[in-house]
């Protein structure tokens, strides 16, 4: 594979990324990372290791303090205003707390994924083109929530709300999905039902996924590659199949013990 092809294949490229918050906390420190099209990259690390900050720097919900980020070959860290928003439409995001608009209908929540391309005035009146409505209904059907479009979002269970959030991301027709602890607030029994939908986007639609996770079972089942953060630095990068006790200690510290249920 020549250099140009490799560059086309590269969805995310991060060089020397650092973030220091106004309160002096350093969340990221000289992070270098490259993500190729079609990968399902899982980012792990303790709470506060910088995973969420890393994801939010990629779509600039947080502005980095140092370093540069390229998305699809364009320098994300150089974009402003309309160009930045246009780039964000190509990146879907899924959150631990689902972050739906609770008082809006399920359908309105899904349609909000189309805000980036909607015309301003109708969108402020919650009006969307019929074509978008059809796409939204199809997206709901796809995540197994057909017929629930008129319910209020907060009437749904946690697992259902997260699937609405996935349908919302789907409406953006994104090339990259950022998933920040997508199943951490869900009942363990429901985790696979949500993860399988994200996996389907990756396998069937060819969307690249960057996902933070805690659960070793899920990491082994879904990740194609693993990156570990500790104190804002990348401390491990590798194959999820070879994720063992040694690497566990390297990531979580000497004090941590892998419980038999987690790494066995």
């Amino acid at each position: 594979m020549n250099g140009a092809a490799a560059a086309r294949d590269e969805v995310v490229r991060i060089e020397g990324l650092g973030k220091v918050f106004p309160n002096g906390v350093r969340a990221l420190d000289a992070v270098d990372l490259s993500v190729r099209r079609g990968e399902f990259l899982v980012v792990i690390g303790l709470s506060g290791s910088g995973k969420s900050t890393l994801l939010r720097c990629i779509n600039r919900l947080i502005d980095p303090s140092e370093g540069r980020i390229w998305l699809f070959g364009e320098e994300m860290t150089a974009l402003q205003g309309a160009e930045l928003r246009a780039m964000r439409t190509r990146v879907g995001m899924i959150f631990q707390q689902f972050n739906l608009v609770k008082r809006h209908s399920v359908l309105a929540n899904v349609l909000s994924g189309a805000l980036g391309r909607a015309s301003l005035l109708p969108s402020l009146l919650l009006r969307f083109p019929e074509a978008d409505r059809q796409v939204a209904l199809a997206a709901l059907e796809r995540v197994g929530l057909g017929g629930r479009d008129a319910s209020r979002a907060d009437a749904l269970s946690g697992g259902q709300q997260q699937r609405v959030a996935i349908a919302r991301a789907l409406l953006q027709e994104p090339e990259l999905i950022l998933a920040d602890e997508p199943v951490a607030s869900l009942d363990p029994a429901l985790r696979h039902s949500v993860m399988r939908h994200i996996e389907a986007l990756n396998r069937e639609e060819g969307m690249t996924v960057i996902c933070t996770l805690h659960d070793v079972d899920l990491i082994r089942r879904y990740a194609t590659r693993l990156v570990a953060l500790r104190d804002g630095k990348v401390v491990h990068e590798g194959d999820p199949e070879k994720f063992d006790g040694e690497t566990f200690k390297a990531i979580y510290g000497e004090e941590a013990e892998p419980t038999p249920g987690l790494v066995g």
């Binding site: 939010r56 779509n59 919900l61 928003r85 246009a86 780039m87 964000r88 439409t89 990146v91 879907g92 995001m93 959150f95 707390q97 689902f98 972050n99 739906l100 608009v101 609770k102 008082r103 809006h104 909000s112 994924g113 189309a114 805000l115 980036g116 391309r117 909607a118 301003l120 969108s123 402020l124 959030a165 919302r168 953006q172 950022l178």
Partner: peptide
């Protein structure tokens, strides 16, 4: 949370206010 989620869709400032803020404060 909803403000972040709406921003992430590429929405403009007015849209973020309309979807992320207004429903919560009505």
């Amino acid at each position: 949370g909803p403000v972040e989620a709406i921003m992430a869709t590429g929405a403009s400032t007015l849209q973020v206010m309309r979807y992320g803020v207004v429903p919560q404060v009505i």
